[in-house]
Design a protein around this nucleic acid. Structure first.
Lengths: 222, 222
DNA sequence: CCAGAATGCGAGCGACCACTCGCGTTTGTC
DNA sequence: GACAAACGCGAGTGGTCGCTCGCATTCTGG
């Protein structure tokens, strides 16, 4: 991996926020989103490491040089793409994961709503799954991935907490971790199928989570 | 990928079964297992694609040329390693997954026994998980992976079948798929922890599967 | 003990890939 | 309309990696 330019941290003088206050033109912004879309499809089909920057540029219909006009390196593409998808996801998921009162919303509804929302998002943006769950991903993105994962786990914990008021914290964490893992596993199956079969797997995932969590909500301890 | 030598099929004269009836010496066999062990550790730490053949040779303390004395290419190393692990696994799992009678063995025991056996094997051979669940894996190994996966699913299906005699086949398949997926997810969590925490996650995985499957065994349909 | 095969070496080859550079084109600004 | 900056190109560069080749060393059968 040629990493020659060590980015000598040219934070030289001015109090300017960015090191290079590159003024983007409208054309440039368009190219960026275009390149990001191309990257999304290439990442989704081949994975991150196997995706070549040349392939992304080709997919976008531009030259490799043009690509590097807007992104300093391959990782930055994934970072930016991941960031934008994360942002878009938060919009969907802040409404769903936060405001839940076990007295009002039964656990069945909480699970169904959350799962539906996440499934929809991931079906719409298959690259997100690749970037966030792909194991061949280098440093910086892995950090974002971890951040998302822990955020997700914490959210599930707070979602779970009111249902199990008298459970020790580590146990709740484990349950939340399992939930996220189960969700990931289910998502993979769901993305691998289409139509009625996909719907059936969605239902199956809900069943798993429901049967797993309902005993907790009912205070049953086996 | 440089694939120059097209193996000109030097089936020159004799009706020998193999193209090269290479007589291995004891030293060679030792080198092979040594290289395979080295490959296992390198694969387990860096994944398949990121693992360089030179790194494997270095880990084994031999030169790259020596490595290619015993394996035609990088893929063959993974194939052979995967094959040996598969073989070793079958020994553990044929005893567990086959002979189960729901009248004699309750579902709790079936789950516990199966999970324990598989967990143990995967903890012992972390490279197996990487080779079988890594997404950066080229053609041939992916085939073996798929073969293992479907075998696993089929086994779980037959394991499940006696508990749900009147369920439609596709539904059983879906349930089996979910079980395998859940197991994979749980395994990842288990491998990521140690000691008491690991044990707790093992228990958690068993709980998930148990709560998921018990309603089926009891004929309860939500 | 001695041919010949198996084993061992490591510099090097070719292909690929992330990334660059010089130069031409378009766009915004005064 | 003129100047600068942003945009666009694509051949080229350095580096890594899978793999080879010629040659030295060790083993094995007769």
């Amino acid at each position: 991996m040629p990493e020659k330019t060590e980015k000598p941290a040219t934070e030289t003088t001015t109090a300017a926020a960015e090191d290079r206050p590159r003024r983007r033109q409208a054309r440039g912004e368009r190219r960026i989103t275009q390149l990001l879309e191309a990257a999304a499809t290439v990442f989704a089909t081949t994975g991150y490491t196997a995706a070549s920057t040349n392939a992304i540029a080709r997919e976008a219909g531009v030259s490799p040089g043009t690509l590097y006009q807007f992104f300093p390196n391959k990782e930055a593409i994934a970072i930016e793409l991941g960031g934008r998808l994360m942002h878009e996801m938060r919009q969907s998921y802040d409404e769903v994961l936060s405001p839940i009162d076990p007295a009002v919303t039964p656990i069945e509804e909480a699970i169904t709503g959350t799962v539906d929302r996440f499934i929809e998002f991931n079906c719409l943006h298959p690259a997100f799954f690749v970037l966030m769950h792909g194991p061949d991903i280098p440093g910086r993105i892995a950090e974002e991935h971890d951040a998302l994962h822990t955020t997700l786990v914490t959210r599930v914990e707070t979602l779970l907490a009111p249902f199990v008021p008298d459970a020790p914290a580590p146990a709740v964490t484990r349950t939340a971790q399992m939930c996220v893992g189960i969700y990931k596993a289910g998502l993979e199956l769901i993305l691998a199928h289409e139509g009625a079969e996909r719907e059936a797997y969605i239902q199956e995932l809900k069943d798993v989570l429901l049967r797993y969590l309902r005993p907790l909500a009912e205070g049953v301890v086996y």
